[in-house]
Design a protein around this nucleic acid. Structure first.
Length: 266
DNA sequence: CGCAGCGCCTGAAGGC
DNA sequence: TGCCTTCAGGCGCTGC
């Protein structure tokens, strides 16, 4: 499941290979989630940016091509259209290469919109500061969390207090910060701890090239290695690495969250 | 406007 | 072996 470290890994790999390339042709799966891919034909890609989990490619006609990888999406530059039933869209680039979008579960989506006009992409329009941007400060984070009465993990996944967090890095950061996942309000001190924990786990994930549990692949088809560094996510029943208490998991708002009942008191 | 609940998707894994 | 159920979960949408 591509979260910020996975999407940023892909962005860094693709940006130099896409900048300045003209899109000669494109095809997509018939779903409206993907058909906007074709609208970029005839334009040139000016770069590749990222906001939260969204990849944003400015085009030379004033529009932006936006790709969200959903749960199982990946992008790769290839010499030919891959012979793969899960390719949901491809763009033919000048120089006879292809940018291929693969997405087994089709949870991702592709949009082509006037630059900065995100009303058709509500989560992007409403999301908070990207976790790696200078706008993501402990104080802004605390104030954003104070505004909602939802559980902290649910708030993190909403992309509103901060953009780019998914269930894996949320679970890890809550464990590091010692915050029970059922909590709805936290102190300024706890918010500061969580802010630091989020930055730490995202930086570690990025340094490890992302987390590959099943489907995630980078733009070169490679796997990340951060799955070996996970201390809490997916470890329910196994001993906490701080206190050896067996970790537990519970479902909150349709999300499984693993936590340490001792290190993360209610 | 905030929020809860549902639907979208498919492969892997486990039960019988 | 094969069928069935459950699970993974980000986000758009609907309705309260």
């Amino acid at each position: 499941m591509p979260e910020l470290p996975e999407v940023e890994t892909i962005r860094r790999q693709l940006a130099p290979r896409l900048e300045g390339r003209r899109i000669q042709d494109a095809r997509s799966h018939e779903s409206e989630k993907f058909t906007p891919a074709v609208a970029a034909v005839g334009t040139a890609v000016q770069g590749l940016n990222r906001k939260g989990k969204y990849l944003i490619a400015p085009l030379d006609d004033g529009r932006e091509l936006i790709v969200h990888l959903g749960m199982t999406g990946s992008l790769a530059v290839t010499p030919a259209i891959p012979d793969d039933p899960y390719i949901r869209a491809w763009w033919q680039l000048d120089g006879d290469e292809f940018l291929a979008y693969r997405d087994i579960r089709r949870f991702g989506r592709i949009r082509c919109v006037p630059a900065g006009q995100y009303d058709a992409i509500p989560t992007l329009a409403a999301q908070g500061p990207d976790a790696l941007s200078p706008d993501f400060t402990a104080e802004a984070f605390y104030q954003a969390i104070r505004k909602s009465r939802r559980r902290i993990p649910t708030q993190l996944l909403s992309q509103k207090p901060v953009a780019g967090i998914g269930n894996i890095y949320a679970t890890e950061a809550l464990w590091i910060a010692g915050i029970h996942p059922a909590k709805r309000r936290i102190s300024r001190a706890a918010a500061t701890k969580l802010h630091i924990a989020l930055l730490d786990v995202l930086e570690a994930g990025l340094a490890n090239g992302g987390t590959t549990l099943r489907d995630y692949r980078d733009a070169g088809g490679g796997e990340g290695s951060h799955q070996h560094a996970l201390a809490c996510y997916g470890r329910s029943g196994r001993p906490c690495r701080r206190c050896a208490t067996p970790l537990r998991h519970r479902v909150y708002d349709a999300r499984t969250v693993t936590f340490c009942p001792l290190c993360q008191p209610r």
